[in-house]
Design a protein around this nucleic acid. Structure first.
Lengths: 212, 212
DNA sequence: GGTAGGCTAGCACGGCTGTGCTATAAAAGA
DNA sequence: TCTTTTATAGCACAGCCGTGCTAGCCTACC
């Protein structure tokens, strides 16, 4: 019985080693050899758990996805829609060290999936999940009158904003602090609320249109 | 005299070869050998023009930056601020094949710069240029009353939106068509204009704040 | 106690990488 | 015309890569 448990534990350790290497040296350094060394294992032993390099990477990425989903699932209930949206979005941004690693993995994974078809399916899964999350937030906000009613186009905008902020946080962590990231999100939520309000006063928006 | 000209021409050909390889096989395939083969040259010959691999990549990226800037510089004058913003932003999105290649190069370059310090400076330069462009657009719009006056936070939002859309277009070109990208931008510009209007009627925004 | 199988280690192979180096051909300058 | 630079080619080296493979260990089960 401890067999299986140990196997799971080993795979978990290996994934942590992958994340450490990627964080420290970048995805290109996350070779089988380097990960094995980082985990204190031999190559052969690693290959006992993961038959190929793609499998290892895919498992690492899946672990990250699971982590994020589990964090979202354990969010404490929040009655206020606006605060609820902020809480969820905060979980999706690289605000602390743990999520910063996940974000860098996501970025590296995304760019590798452009080339490695074996990773594409999983990358798409992550993409779809995030987009669905954005849609859920907007549906929730819209029901409370805090966002426009055409969810589709707003989903694209919020999703792009999130991923764009994530990219910026990854390449310029000095500029994009947790504070500035949260400020950008807050501003977007403010804007959505104002749009929802403006939509109920069409004269205003018509005026702004003629002005241009 | 034809010496220098030919040298420039050769470097240009080599950069085109780099872009072709990256587009076809991804950045990881853009090795010295592959690029030389693509350009119909020997490795030694390539290394006569570019002493190192980083130098070749950096030159390719600089060429792309120059291309974008030159396209922006040759935009025909547009009196209407809103249309002017749309024109500029359209140049910065991967709407056609040429810009799609540039976008993929940007993405690959960005993720490699996370690891290769030699590329970091140039990547920062591209980042700064794009951010400055966003700021200029918003300053322009704001002066026409078509965007809020706090340029700083709006710059971050627009910049993130642009890069997020670029990432999405790269990983899901089937979903993110030229049309949907332009729609997202148009929506953002609409929202900015409405925000500028709402800011002049603070009662409205105060109301929406108390609602939450 | 014996034995099958999960587990670990490590070597070897072929292939790719960037770069240093030398030798040849072409062109430019004297 | 002779010489010096420039351009091209291609080999060699050391290093990394993923993966196939074999040999032993160690534990669990019969």
């Amino acid at each position: 019985m401890p067999k299986v448990v140990d196997a799971i534990e080993r795979r978990r350790k290996l994934v942590e080693a992958v994340l450490r290497v990627i964080r420290r040296d970048g995805l290109e350094q996350a070779s089988v050899r380097n990960v094995a060394r980082e985990a204190g294992l031999s190559m052969g032993s690693l290959r006992h758990y993961f038959a190929s390099q793609s499998e290892l990477m895919a498992f690492a990425f899946r672990t990250v996805i699971d982590r994020i989903e589990s964090r979202l699932a354990t969010l404490e209930p929040e009655p206020d829609p606006r605060r609820r949206a902020e809480r969820v979005l905060a979980e999706l941004l690289p605000l602390d060290d743990e999520r910063r690693v996940e974000n860098e993995l996501w970025l590296a994974f995304t760019s590798r999936a452009l080339v490695d078809p074996a990773l594409r399916e999983l990358r798409d899964e992550g993409y779809d999940a995030l987009r669905a999350g954005c849609r859920a937030i907007l549906t929730d906000l819209s029901a409370a009158g805090l966002a426009p009613t055409d969810i589709d186009v707003e989903t694209g905008r919020l999703h792009a904003l999130l991923d764009g902020l994530a990219v910026h946080a990854a390449i310029r962590p000095d500029i994009h602090t947790a504070h500035s990231l949260k400020a950008a999100i807050a501003r977007h939520l403010d804007a959505l609320a104002r749009e929802a309000t403006a939509a109920r006063a069409p004269t205003e928006s018509a005026l702004s249109r003629t002005v241009r």
